[in-house]
């Protein structure tokens, strides 16, 4: 009978099977590397309409976060400041700087500046800034060292698994509530973060919810 497959066919079959196996492994690895927010969200640093530097204002000048992001201690959202907040200082300081042209136009015309939003939780997540800040979760825990960022970068993944890590072990991130906006805070001498955090957890009766309805209402 005539041969259908030669010896080489088996070599090709073996190569094909190895190739298929490798593609599956590569595909799965690729999805796990490229799909999570650790890859898609971390590092997001959009160009803002005004080259506002947190590194200058919050870092070198030592402006408090709360000066601009008012309401973070009372409200579920940390507000983006209106042009008024900028003008408070910049009507006197560097009032003619070309970099501030957009601010002056906005102030004169009354139309707000369209800042690019960096951090955003999905609509189905109920996140309350006030609850976190007033129980001593510092800004730095979720936003990173903003005081060192000339351009704000999305530093943490803000994925659900990442939220849960802290909700299961809040002591790793707790600090005295009045230190919430302090980027340089360290636990007191002789105590590590864990033990100090546990004391605070007890003191404030912190029971971070781990059930679905804690965040999805």
């Amino acid at each position: 009978m005539a041969l259908i497959f030669t010896q080489r066919a088996d070599d090709w079959l073996r190569r094909g099977m190895a190739g298929a196996f490798a593609s599956v492994v590569l595909g799965i690895t690729g999805i796990y590397y490229y799909a999570p927010p650790e890859y898609t969200r971390v590092g997001y640093a959009p160009k803002q309409p005004v080259a506002y530097s947190h590194e200058l204002h919050a870092g070198r000048l030592g402006l408090s976060c709360l000066y601009c992001h008012t309401g973070v201690e009372e409200s579920s959202v940390a507000k983006i400041p209106p042009t008024q907040t900028c003008i408070n200082c910049h009507q006197a300081i560097k009032a003619d700087s070309p970099q501030l042209e957009a601010i002056r136009v906005s102030w004169a015309g009354g139309s707000p500046i369209r800042w690019e939003r960096v951090h955003q939780t999905p609509d189905y997540v109920y996140f309350n800034h006030a609850v976190h800040v007033r129980r001593g979760v510092g800004c730095v825990s979720c936003h990173g060292k903003v005081n060192e960022m000339p351009v704000v970068v999305h530093e943490k993944p803000l994925s659900m698994g990442w939220c849960l890590e802290c909700h299961r072990h809040p002591e790793e991130h707790l600090r005295p509530p009045d230190q919430a906006t302090n980027f340089e805070w360290q636990p007191p001498q002789g105590q590590n973060q864990r033990d100090f955090g546990l004391t605070l957890k007890d003191q404030f009766g912190i029971r971070a919810p781990e059930t679905c309805t804690g965040c999805h209402r």
């Binding site: 041969l3 497959f5 030669t6 066919a9």
Partner: peptide, 14 residues
């Protein structure tokens, strides 16, 4: 799987 085998050369092996 072994697609090729010498016996497939047999005249009536089909």
């Amino acid at each position: 799987p072994r697609l090729y085998h010498p016996l497939f050369r047999g005249r009536d092996f089909g």
